[in-house]
Design a protein around this nucleic acid. Structure first.
Lengths: 170, 170
DNA sequence: GACCCCATGTAAGCCGTTACATGATTTT
DNA sequence: AAAATCATGTAACGGCTTACATGGGGTC
């Protein structure tokens, strides 16, 4: 899975500009994917060149023009091929867990600071995901719901453990 | 956090060769970090050149020689600097969740296949982490224990949800 | 002889980030 | 006039993967 595949998925639902794709990433994908403009725009250009997308300049009122990209049949086929390919392993890299692993080499207050910071971050992510799910309500598919539930239960479990850790005197 | 920081952490405990560092990664870090030989060897060479490590060739019986690297005072200081730097956000990229998000575009059996595959993967990771924790027993520090517990509770939560999903008829 | 484990490295290339650069339009 | 939002792109660079290349030693 790379940025190209995710873009194919988004454009499967509706044509979008690069700017809109970025917003999509931030709103709905932030907990399992991310990409910057520096990736999105060159990727869109490359995909148009290789025939997966077509570009169309669209005028807007009160806003600059935007380049709206639409999936071609080749692009749609490419996405189907991806969906049939073997599932890839998750990529997880945690500075927090890394530091905990070497926690003995830091003083106790520092370690507690890390735990507090991570707890705070997870609580924000949890609240955001829950808000999103409530907002979408009935208009999401069962597998989309499962996707979000996976995020929620992982956050819940971690939050609970970290809270418990902070309340237990060392 | 990058490979260099992790290597500094490992060498803080004891001198190692590149090959041993790789094994260390696979055994103890696999659930929150990974690096290949193609990264490890050039990184070690670079770190020696910049004075963070010293290299020593060591003869072994019945095995090829190995290059054992030892932390210099500069390397130790560099690691301390890292530990005092702000905590970085986790990187999480999930092909599985990505596909669930676009699940409507695949048929039901395919989606079920993904869930089964991911459940299987998580169960293996869970068993491995639990085995490791039992094996280490009392010889791990409290923060190391917390590190592993975070992994365990996340796996547990996900496994439970995916199992439940598979047993609920659609 | 084939295969696996131990051990070290290089080179090409992919993927992505950050910072830079530009410019329209709207709001304050 | 300044700031914020909308919108698109480039360039330099970092980090990492895969594949390739090499070679000693032990086992079947």
């Amino acid at each position: 899975m790379n940025t190209q595949h995710v873009i194919l998925g988004i454009l499967h639902n509706q044509p979008c500009s690069g700017y809109e794709i970025k917003q999509y990433f931030e709103q709905y994908f932030s907990f399992f994917f991310d990409a910057s403009f520096g990736t999105i725009y060159p990727t869109l250009a490359k995909m148009e060149k290789s025939g997966l997308l077509t570009k169309e300049s669209v005028r807007q009122e009160g806003k600059p023009d935007k380049n709206v990209y639409t999936l071609t049949p080749e692009g749609s086929a490419e996405f189907s091929t991806y969906l049939m390919s073997p599932l890839e392993a998750e990529v997880f890299r945690s500075d927090f867990l890394m530091r905990l692993y070497f926690g003995e080499l830091a003083d106790e207050d520092t370690v507690t600071g890390w735990v507090r910071a991570e707890l705070n971050r997870k609580e924000l992510l949890y609240a955001e995901l829950q808000r999103q799910m409530k907002q979408l309500g009935e208009q999401i598919s069962p597998s989309q719901r499962l996707c979000m539930q996976v995020g929620l239960v992982q956050y819940e479990a971690t939050i609970q453990l970290l809270k418990q850790q902070l309340s237990t005197p060392q």
